[in-house]
């Protein structure tokens, strides 16, 4: 599903009633099936942008146009339902869409296998580690085979090895289903490894400072010199954002 955002602005009012612009005018259009990573320092409005796109938050002005389709959303803090076990959590969006019970189960089991949580399907969220909870949240976002998938730092609390496996899994699945993905992360290497295109955001107010499609071929090799080159160039942009004095 393609998506286009034009001239979007969003402010919050703080306690004293003062208006604080969180998202500056933002223009962004995402092609159908594109995997876009949104990279930016903390507090620059990445979560807010996802919330506006998903309709949880109303923009002050600007326009978002997209086709109709299924939405998948993986929250920054899991947001699993603590009174449901892992399997029920994952089945939630399927049941909400009115899918028959046995189909729900087979779909959930398939995705549980993919994220490696099949043995834990009867556990409750509080019985799992932080990383396992994140994988559950990922599975819940993926299970419907969404047309647009919004992911808010889904791999933040995973160790490198598990993170890489899941990146692989996510990437393959999204290509197979030609899902349009907006993936928020702090992790530059993750962004360079996963995405077709990287959008870097700066803060106060949140705006796009760099938007670049990657020409790296698949499968990507994290140790190749081209990969490192791209990585370094984005690291440079990032450092500049945090501390503008480096740019010289």
């Amino acid at each position: 599903m393609s998506l286009s955002i034009m001239n979007l602005e969003k402010s919050y009012s703080d306690i004293s009633g003062k208006n604080l612009r969180v998202l500056g005018p933002i223009d962004l259009s995402v092609q159908n099936g594109e995997f876009v990573c949104l990279l930016g320092p903390t507090g620059c409005g990445k979560t807010t942008l996802l919330r506006v796109i998903s309709g949880l938050e109303q923009a002050d002005c600007g326009e978002i146009s997209s086709e109709k389709g299924r939405l998948g959303y993986v929250f920054q803090q899991g947001a699993l339902f603590p009174w449901m076990n892992i399997e029920s959590n994952i089945k939630f969006p399927l049941k909400a869409a009115g899918m028959a019970a046995d189909l729900c189960r087979s779909k959930a089991e398939e995705i549980l296998d993919l994220v490696g949580l099949y043995e834990f399907r009867k556990s409750f969220p509080h019985e799992l580690s932080g990383g396992m909870q994140q994988r559950t949240a990922l599975a819940r976002g993926l299970v419907t085979g969404p047309d647009l998938l919004l992911l808010d730092e889904p791999f933040a609390s995973l160790d490198t090895r598990t993170g890489i496996n899941l990146q692989e899994m996510l990437r393959n699945l999204c290509r197979r289903l030609s899902t349009t993905v907006i993936f928020v992360t702090h992790n530059i290497e993750e962004a360079v490894y996963l995405s077709d295109r990287i959008v870097v955001m700066g803060h106060r107010p949140g705006r796009i400072v760099r938007d670049e499609s990657l020409s790296l071929e698949w499968p990507r090799n994290r140790l190749s010199s081209t990969f490192t080159e791209v990585l370094l160039s984005f690291r440079h942009t990032f450092e500049e954002l945090v501390d503008p004095s480096i740019s010289s």
Binding site: S54, G55, L56, Y73, F75, F81, F92, A96, A97, R140
Partner: peptide
């Protein structure tokens, strides 16, 4: 919110 974005009525 999670329920809403996951398509629940």
């Amino acid at each position: 919110e999670a329920a809403r974005v996951l398509g629940a009525s």
